[in-house]
Design a binder for these strands. Sequence first.
DNA 1: GCGCTGACCAGAT
DNA 2: AATCTGGCCAGCG
Length: 110
Amino acid sequence: MKKSDNFFDKVYNVTRLIPHGKVTSYGAIATYLGAAKSARMVGWAMNKAHNLEDVPAHRVVNRKGLLTGKHHFDGTNLMQQLLESEGIVVVDNQIQDLETVFWNPMEELS
DNA sequence: GCGCTGACCAGAT
DNA sequence: AATCTGGCCAGCG
């Protein structure tokens, strides 16, 4: 049994459940986990998560739909390309029609 | 073992 | 309106 993977494990779990062609925000995941103020934790978890192939961190963006974490990916615009590859329109690191592609875990997984 | 940092968010100044 | 700080928690020096 791990001691602190509880929070992270949930983050990975939810992130893996993000449907193809959809995105969510750190705050949404944090809120779903019951730690709305710990959105930073989600991003931090992503830092490790991006090392895991099971966790599509590129589908997780900030509240504004901005690809804040793209700087952490291998390439410069790899994250944007991945999102565009899934049908998500991204311009200048900013997701277009965010409300259309936004996937709310607490509503979908509730 | 203490302190800083970190892919955020929202309120306050 | 823009900038800053506070908050949450865990990993790393």
